[in-house]
């Protein structure tokens, strides 16, 4: 068992399954929590996602 490799990848590799989709639900939920926890981080991320979406609108 190699702890530095992703465990799900290792599991599916050992089973010989190639096309699978694993959703890292808890990690994603944790990231959203972290972003909401810190005011500065939240501001930066929000600002960026807004500017990104506005850029996308412009290019369209």
């Amino acid at each position: 068992m190699n702890y530095e490799k992703n465990d799900v990848d290792e599991l599916y590799k050992s089973l010989g399954i190639k096309d699978y989709r694993y959703v890292e639900i808890q990690e994603n939920e944790e990231i959203i929590q972290i972003i909401n926890k810190w005011a500065l981080v939240k501001e930066i991320i929000n600002f960026c996602s807004e500017s990104q979406s506005s850029q996308e609108v412009k290019t369209k």
């Binding site: 068992m1 702890y3 465990d7 799900v8 290792e10 599991l11 050992s14």
Partner: peptide, 12 residues
């Protein structure tokens, strides 16, 4: 999370 819960904990 980082031992018992690892999905490959028992695969080998």
């Amino acid at each position: 999370k980082c031992n018992y819960s690892r999905s490959d904990a028992w695969s080998a």
